[in-house]
Design a binder for these strands. Structure first.
Lengths: 156, 156
DNA sequence: GTTATAGTTGAAGTCAACTTGAGGTCAAGG
DNA sequence: CCTTGACCTCAAGTTGACTTCAACTATAAC
């Protein structure tokens, strides 16, 4: 067993629940970083675990890696991120989750009315309506997870 | 303008809001069907629109095409599907949506407690917890849309 | 009959987020 | 010193749901 406070990929993988290949991929995408031993093996500082926790949490909320990347980029690089930094980043997730929940609820309520009538009319049914799942209040629906986003004709 | 009650791909595409390429793909996957003209062009019966509405609705709820396909296969082929048939199929969506909503709510509530503490601890934080988003009641979380499913270590 | 528009096929490309495989190297315990 | 298990890189493969392309043909309107 090594005695330093640096972690190998295997250790980080186990502690974070992510596959080593995912860790390499994240590094390649600039989301995390590691130093190298003289023999070119990765050694991670413990704080990478927090970063990975953030990444997982963000992915759970439905962000793409690109968005995660952008969020991480707003962290200060001259000092260690504080609680406040992480809090700031995760605060916007709440809105996103609220939007997602609202969208699902709308879908469900539309479905409830559809179950009564069995219509699934292209024109009238909220559930199968091609364009307008999120309704008309402005520019919503941007934060729906992929499978809940209605493919607007012409783009998937 | 043609006078029959059969629809061309273009017409079906416009009325359903789906791309012609998607319609061909669905046909290839056995989700819809069409007759052909002597010149080999597709002609759709009007009821394909209802089927497409179903497909879109199901996709909105997060089903894969394979699941949609399985659902459609339970429709009777000796008679036209009735309202009751469509209703039966869509009834299971409700449960799925309820599950999705519950999962998101759980995520949000976990987030609310995290915003206060800024922790994102791998061990304690519900939002970034690798294994256990849906909690312990049995085998839940099967119907979470892809981006909300936590990748269990070893599989994506 | 001509032309414009719309349709046909099969193969290949796209996207995100990884995983897998081949072929080779490192590190730690005995 | 040697073996074993962990690690390295780079390229290619995977999945689902399509889209795009090239090369060609049909149909409808005039």
């Amino acid at each position: 067993m090594r005695s330093t406070d640096l972690l190998t990929v295997g250790e980080v993988a186990e502690r974070s629940g992510m596959a080593p290949s995912a860790l390499r991929y994240y590094e390649q995408e600039g989301l995390i970083s590691a130093t190298r031993t003289t023999g070119n093996q990765r050694r991670y500082q413990r704080h990478v675990l927090r970063r990975l926790a953030f990444i997982r949490a963000a992915r759970n909320v439905g962000l793409t890696l690109e968005e995660v990347s952008a969020a991480l980029a707003t962290l200060p690089d001259n000092r260690n991120p504080t609680k406040a930094d992480w809090t700031r980043l995760s605060r916007t997730w709440r809105d996103r989750l609220d939007e997602q929940i609202a969208a699902l609820r709308k879908l469900r309520d539309g479905l409830d009315s559809c179950i009564g009538c069995g219509c699934l009319s292209l024109q009238r049914c909220a559930v199968s309506n091609p364009a307008d799942i999120m309704g008309s209040q402005g520019s919503g629906a941007r934060y729906l997870p992929r499978p809940l986003r209605v493919s607007s004709p012409g783009r998937r």
